[in-house]
Amino acid sequence: MHIPDGFISPQTYLPAAVVGAGLLAVAYKKVDLDIEKIPMLSGLSAIAFVMMLIIIPLPGGTTVHLSGIAIVALLFNPWIAFMSISLVLLIQALMFGDGGVTAYPINMLSLAFLGSFSAYYGYHIFKQVSKKFALLFAGWISIVLPSLFIATVLGVQPIIASADDGSPLFFPFGLNVTLPSIVIPHLLLGLLEGVVAYGAVHFLRLRFKKAFDA
């Protein structure tokens, strides 16, 4: 879901970078990142990174990859998840070219921030009704909401940044193309992410109870 380089205009990514940096500053303050927590947080970031590398086959020969955002947000808390996913996205952008540097603020706000918080609050809204459903919903929303945000940001690029003759200078497709082509597949992908989030959170809490009680 990461947006690559060259698709986002400076008019979009510069304000997004300011908002993202502000949110990261709040996160670092809130999490109270003492040096003892750093190995655990880096481990979580590595888990999120590996989750994005795990490819799962779908019928028809296609594959999808997990995001792991909901898993980290639910096992710990959304601020920790936001911090660790942001770091993963930064390393991915700089070292591997996976997600552009210019798109990093948007990727951070959508995947790391919206993904983590929607999963966490989605779970807490529905956990009174059914814990199983709440976990499935958390995984689903952690994929769907960022995809909606990304589709909107990409879709407004032809309006925000275009040449005098009206031709686009960055991402060329409008909302009529981005919303259905990005959001609809993620509505389905979210179901798989929900099942994986349910399985992973349930299993890891059971298997590594001590780590979460600490």
Partner: peptide, 19 residues
Amino acid sequence: KGSVLYAFTYSQMMLSKKM
């Protein structure tokens, strides 16, 4: 803290990737 976090995260990411 930022530099320590980055160093640890990068090393853990590489380790997990290898795994």
